[in-house]
């Protein structure tokens, strides 16, 4: 795409009509490019088509059918889910989790990456922050219970300081627990990603900025941050995908019906599948995929524009 655009750009910037042999050469070039693109894309595209696109096509079809008898029912399933209180609650909670969790993760991990980047013990710090990723889910669940149960460590600490204990998993505080565990588990990985970006920032440009009298903040805001912009898209998408994994811990600790603030879309889908509500799952799946695609395209467009 990039080279094609460059070519188009050159053609436009030139201002002169192209010569016929030049046009011909460019078409040959484009044709070869298409061939090689097609060949390179074919294996992975086939895999994606067979395992993702076609099944999704079936899901989209099922979203207009009844659950098991598969009779066409129009948009009834969509109407049903948008009147379903559990779906609305799960969407709200998931959206809130994404809106709160991902920016927090991005900002905190960037700050930590900046701090670690200048530290003499970079590898040590990285290992410390990556450690939660190595902890198996079953152990995480035990840690959750140790920390957040009624007589857990956290409440013990609170009691010592004279603060009344909180029902971390049975009250609205469960949302804080959810966000905290997401941050804790994914911080290390995100820090590593940010550090990769930081290392790619041109040292000469930073030096030049300093020579021109830029402060550390200015240097970060006007030199480092713009260079990190391509990383934002990747990290955001990865963080979004990782955010779905927090369901495992939530499910194992609090079961299929946790405190309302912890009730995510995955809980709902899990429970719907247990009750064989395939019609609702299909309709909700299509809606969520649409929102996800819109989000990804919006991010990509934003990125392209900034580029």
């Amino acid at each position: 795409m990039k080279s094609y655009r460059k070519f188009r750009c050159n053609y436009r910037s030139n201002g002169n009509p192209p010569r016929s042999d030049r046009t011909h050469r460019s078409k040959i070039y484009n044709g070869r490019l298409s061939q090689s693109r097609a060949l390179f894309l074919l294996p992975s595209l086939t895999g994606v088509s067979v395992f993702v696109l076609f099944p999704f096509g079936d899901v989209a079809k099922r979203s207009f059918q009844t659950a098991m008898t598969k009779k066409f029912c129009g948009i009834a399933n969509y109407t049903t889910i948008f009147h379903n209180q559990a779906f609305l609650l799960a969407v709200t909670n998931t959206a809130r989790f994404v809106v709160v969790g991902i920016p927090l993760l991005l900002v905190l991990s960037l700050l930590l990456a900046l701090m670690i980047d200048g530290s003499p013990f970079v590898q040590g710090w990285k290992s410390v922050y990556l450690f939660p990723m190595a902890i198996p889910t079953a152990t995480m669940v035990l840690i959750w219970k140790l920390l957040f149960s009624g007589n857990g460590l956290l409440n013990g600490l609170l009691r010592k300081r004279g603060v009344p204990p909180t029902d971390w998993l049975g009250s609205d505080a469960s949302f804080v627990v959810l966000v905290f565990s997401y941050l804790w588990k994914n911080m290390g990985y995100t820090i590593v990603l940010w550090m990769t970006g930081l290392r790619s920032v041109s040292v000469e440009r930073k030096e030049a900025a300093k020579v021109d009298g830029a402060s550390r903040l200015q240097c970060f805001l006007y030199v480092v941050l713009p260079e990190l912009t391509p990383m934002v898209f990747t990290i955001t998408v990865l963080s979004f995908l990782n955010s779905f994994k927090v369901f495992r811990e939530a499910y194992l600790v609090a079961g299929a019906y946790p405190q309302q603030k912890m009730y995510l879309l995955q809980h709902l889908f899990n429970n719907w599948f247990t009750n064989l509500e395939m019609d609702k799952i299909a309709a909700a799946g299509v809606c969520i995929a649409a929102v996800f695609l819109i989000g990804v395209f919006a991010l990509q467009r934003l990125w392209d524009r900034q580029e």
């Binding site: 044709g31 097609a38 086939t46 088509s49």
Partner: peptide, 23 residues
Amino acid sequence: KKKHYIYPRFLVCLLLFFSVSGL
């Protein structure tokens, strides 16, 4: 000229075939 467009068309046809047969 014709050959240039054979591969993308073939790819699209293949995907369409898979899609339709899959569904």
